[in-house]
Amino acid sequence: MIKQLSKKQQKLVKDLIKSKKARMKNRCFIVEGLKNVAESIKSNYEVRFVVISDDFFKSNIGFIKILSKQVCPNRLYQVRDNLFNELTDTVTPQGIMAVINFKDTNIEDVQKENFLMIALDRIQDPGNMGTIIRTADAAGADAIVIGQKCVDIYNPKVVRSAMGSLFHVPIIQTDDLIKTLIELKEKGGKVVTTHLKAKKPYYDVNYMACTIIVMGSEDEGVSKEIVRISDELVKIPMPGSAESLNVAIAHGIMVFEAVKQRIKPVPTACK
């Protein structure tokens, strides 16, 4: 028997959608849509509860049966369609959402030979953040390091634009990005940073050994401190008239250069 959602739970859902403060306080976030919910359930994230609209329940009986085997039945809740629409901020909701607990990841959890990591400094746009997470997942990155001044990765817009990849690639959130990058350098990592004034093209760098690709904010790029500790400063040649690239596009170009190099015979191991 699927239960009814309490007033307290309804308030929690609304607060999690609207407020980073509420997400931090309760250490959980909202996932919406069939694909994202399915990916969250298959992952090693903990599902607090799932909310289903009446219409979704009627139209997806097969999925509901599978869901009831994957999630404890007392964590499944059904609501009227109009109430579901009140809970969500999605324009055309699919009728299913889940409340997922935070998952903390440390460098030690993801360290491996020849690691490829992405580090993000002050990325502010939710759409860019979600696209970067999705692209890093497609490229097989071992982890993404998120600096403190970046947009909240559990922002509903980030979660939606990541399209399930949030649950595939480990994400390390750090209060001190410089300290974390130095720690990765000490473990044999090479910090490769995009910079408009760099002389070297991105494709002239060797990404075969342990590498951390650093992308900076949409307006200012990376901080001076990151430039100072970087092993390589690179640029993406732009023969056209545009002054710069969208950071998510630039990230895709960089990370798939690493993929191109790494699909060649056995890469060089870390020291």
Results as ranks from 00 to 15, higher is better:
Ala143Met: 04
Ile144Ser: 04
Ile144Met: 05
Val145Gln: 06
Ile146Ser: 07
Gly147Arg: 06
Gln148Asn: 13
Tyr154Ile: 05
Pro156Gly: 02
Val158Cys: 05
Val159Asp: 11
Ser161Trp: 07
Ser161Leu: 14
Met163Val: 15
Ser165Thr: 09
Ser165His: 08
Ser165Ile: 08
Ser165Trp: 03
Ser165Phe: 03
Phe167Cys: 11
Phe167Thr: 09
Phe167Ile: 09
Phe167Trp: 12
His168Asn: 14
His168Val: 11
Val169Ser: 11
Val169Thr: 12
Pro170Ile: 07
Ile171Ser: 11
Gln173Val: 12
Thr174Cys: 04
Asp175Ile: 13
Leu177Asp: 06
Ile178Met: 06
Ile178Leu: 11
Ile178Gly: 04
Ile178Pro: 03
Lys179Phe: 15
Lys179Val: 05
Leu181Pro: 02
Ile182Gln: 15
Glu183Thr: 15
Leu184Gln: 10
Lys187Asn: 15
Lys187Glu: 10
Gly188Ala: 07
Gly189Ser: 07
Gly189Tyr: 04
Lys190Ile: 11
Thr193His: 08
Thr194Phe: 14
Thr194Arg: 03
Thr194Ala: 14
Leu196Gln: 13
Lys197Phe: 13
Lys197Asp: 14
Ala198Asp: 10
Ala198Ile: 05
Lys199Glu: 12
Lys199His: 11
Lys200Gly: 01
Pro201Lys: 01
Pro201Ala: 07
Tyr203Trp: 08
Asp204Tyr: 07
Asp204Leu: 13
Asn206Ile: 01
Tyr207Asp: 04
Met208Leu: 12
Ala209Gly: 06
Thr211Ala: 11
Thr211Gln: 09
Ile212Gln: 01
Ile213Tyr: 06
Val214Tyr: 02
Val222Met: 06
Val222His: 07
Val222Cys: 12
Ser223Arg: 04
Lys224Leu: 13
Arg228Gly: 05
Arg228Cys: 05
Ser230Trp: 01
Asp231Met: 00
Leu233Pro: 01
Val234Trp: 10
Lys235Ala: 12
Ile236Tyr: 09
Ser241Asp: 10
Ser241Tyr: 15
Glu243Ala: 14
Ser244Thr: 08
Leu245Phe: 11
Asn246Pro: 01
Val247Ile: 09
Val247Asn: 02
Ala250Gly: 03
Ala250Asp: 01
Ala250Pro: 00
Ala250His: 02
His251Arg: 00
Ile253Trp: 08
Phe256Tyr: 15
Glu257Gln: 06
Val259Met: 07
